[in-house]
Computed example of a mutant assay.
Amino acid sequence: MTGNGHTSWAFADAYGVPDIGTAAGEALLWARDRSREIGVASVSPGCGDALRLLTATADAKAVVEIGTGTGVSGLYLLLGMRPDGVLTTMDTEPERQQFAREAFRAAGFAGNRARLIPGRALDVLPRLTDGGYDLVFCDGDREEYLDYLGEAVRLLRPGGVLCFAGVFSGGDTVDSSAQTTTVLTLRELLRTLRDSDRLVPALLPVGDGLLCATCR
């Protein structure tokens, strides 16, 4: 990529970030700082923008998030959802969810807008309602992505949207020499969505790769 290409990429990644000085902008900055402090990766601004756009396009009232973190991606999802929408978000680390709860509150979202569930995603997802959700965002254990896929398709209404973060795996997914379990799982996920008769996929080059699909 040329120098101008890198500049354009950086401009695009920062384009839709809420302004510092707004409640949402300050909450995002705070949540990102908490992520860095505890060593948890968070979605890039460009990836967050894409999530907000997809959520708004789906007119989402019910969203599932796998991997709460400190609330960065959850803020983008909430910003795109309907005013009466509810985000159901899960994480294996309750202390991260406490940061997320504070970030949501600081951004001005009422407490009933987010349902934070501590626990492993594959234990929580089976308890959620079939066809009851407009969007499912997966940002948990990459090695469990194929397992998330089956649950997510069950949870989505027709026309619902499915998103997986981090599918580039820092470039390893397209590096033929990389053969880790994570990379092999991501490659299989990409093939499965591409070959599915039920899903219409697209791989967006934002952040570390955002794989999306809609259910027919």
Rank of each mutant, 00 (worst) to 15 (best):
E26T: 15
E26R: 13
A27S: 14
L29I: 08
L29K: 15
W30N: 07
R32M: 09
R32I: 11
R32P: 08
R32D: 09
D33C: 02
S35N: 11
S35L: 00
S35P: 09
R36N: 05
R36D: 11
E37H: 08
I38K: 01
I38S: 07
G39T: 02
G39C: 01
G39Q: 00
V40A: 12
V40C: 11
V40K: 02
A41M: 14
A41C: 03
A41P: 14
S42D: 13
S42F: 14
S42K: 01
S42T: 15
P45H: 12
P45W: 07
G46A: 09
C47V: 06
C47Y: 03
C47S: 08
G48W: 09
G48Q: 10
D49V: 03
A50E: 04
A50F: 05
A50Y: 05
A50C: 13
L51Q: 12
R52Q: 13
L54Y: 05
L54W: 02
T55G: 12
A56T: 03
T57K: 06
A58G: 07
D59E: 15
D59H: 13
D59F: 03
A60T: 09
K61A: 13
K61M: 11
K61P: 03
K61I: 10
A62C: 02
V63K: 01
V63D: 06
V64M: 05
V64W: 01
V64H: 05
V64G: 12
V64C: 04
I66F: 03
I66T: 12
G67N: 08
G67Y: 00
G69F: 05
T70L: 08
T70Q: 03
T70R: 09
G71F: 00
G71M: 06
V72Y: 01
V72R: 01
V72E: 03
S73H: 04
G74F: 08
G74D: 08
L75D: 05
L75Y: 04
Y76K: 01
Y76D: 07
Y76P: 08
Y76N: 04
L77H: 00
L78H: 13
L78R: 09
L79S: 11
L79N: 15
L79G: 12
L79Y: 00
L79E: 10
G80Q: 06
G80A: 07
G80V: 15
G80H: 03
M81E: 07
M81S: 11
M81Q: 12
R82A: 14
R82H: 09
R82L: 02
P83H: 06
P83D: 12
D84G: 11
D84I: 04
G85E: 06
G85Q: 09
V86F: 03
V86G: 01
V86E: 06
L87K: 00
L87M: 08
T88M: 04
T89E: 02
T89I: 09
T89Y: 00
T89H: 00
T89A: 15
T89K: 00
M90V: 04
M90K: 07
M90N: 10
M90E: 08
D91I: 14
D91M: 06
T92P: 02
T92H: 07
T92R: 09
E93S: 10
E93C: 03
E93G: 03
P94G: 14
P94N: 04
P94L: 12
E95G: 07
E95F: 05
E95M: 12
E95A: 15
E95C: 03
E95P: 05
